[in-house]
Nucleic acid binder design. Structure first.
Length: 193
DNA sequence: AGCACA
């Protein structure tokens, strides 16, 4: 009787099933906002829409990265493998990387693993057209990198291709790609149609 | 969420 009192999120099937609250159930006298009769810890969580916000509406599915041909922790000094295609594991880039910065040729890379090296980023980003160089900044626990492209078109395509790509040294969801901030960007670079 | 050099 309490199995489907709220909603059911089925993340595995990439489908969201939300069962409406009991309108004509046996407990129809219960108010819509008060769905937890046993625990009255938080009463402030009420919506005028009558739909409890759980915040779990995103159906993020991480693929398993089938390109792990090199599982070694060491990397060759020269880039010997630059032919793998990151477009194979295309997913929704906007699910976990909202880039609101104005477009620029330089990309900001974050959410890297603690053992990520600059050579690894070079090997990954060199597969994109217009790639120039990678400048990595090692901070403790939060390494970031800057990737320079020749144009904003190249950097935009690089974001779409390599957004959320899990490196061999990644620990979480993968690296986060954004447009780099710069005080030079305050110039008029927004072109209106 | 976290943004440096030239």
């Amino acid at each position: 009787m309490s199995a489907t009192n709220g909603m059911i999120f089925d993340l595995e099937n990439n489908c969201t099933l939300h069962v409406d609250l009991a309108k004509s159930n046996s407990r129809s006298k219960r108010s819509r906002t008060d769905d937890v009769p046993s625990y009255s810890s938080e009463k402030k969580a009420r919506n005028p829409r009558g739909f409890p916000d759980s915040g779990a509406g995103s159906n993020i599915h991480m693929s398993g990265m089938g390109n792990s041909s090199h599982s070694l922790n060491g990397y060759p000094s020269a880039q010997s493998y630059t032919n793998f295609e990151p477009a194979a594991f295309s997913k929704d880039p906007s699910a976990f990387a909202p880039q609101n910065n104005p477009p620029c040729p330089t990309l900001f890379v974050a959410n890297l693993g603690p053992t990520c090296s600059e050579q690894e980023l070079i090997d990954v980003f060199s597969s994109c057209a217009g790639f120039i160089k990678v400048k990595m900044q090692n901070k403790f626990g939060a390494p970031v990198a800057f990737v320079d492209f020749k144009d904003m078109d190249s950097s935009t395509e690089a974001i779409n291709r390599l957004q959320g790509v899990i490196l061999y040294s990644s620990t979480g969801e993968g690296m986060r790609l954004e447009y780099a901030k710069s005080r030079m960007g305050l110039r008029k670079q927004d072109k209106r149609q």
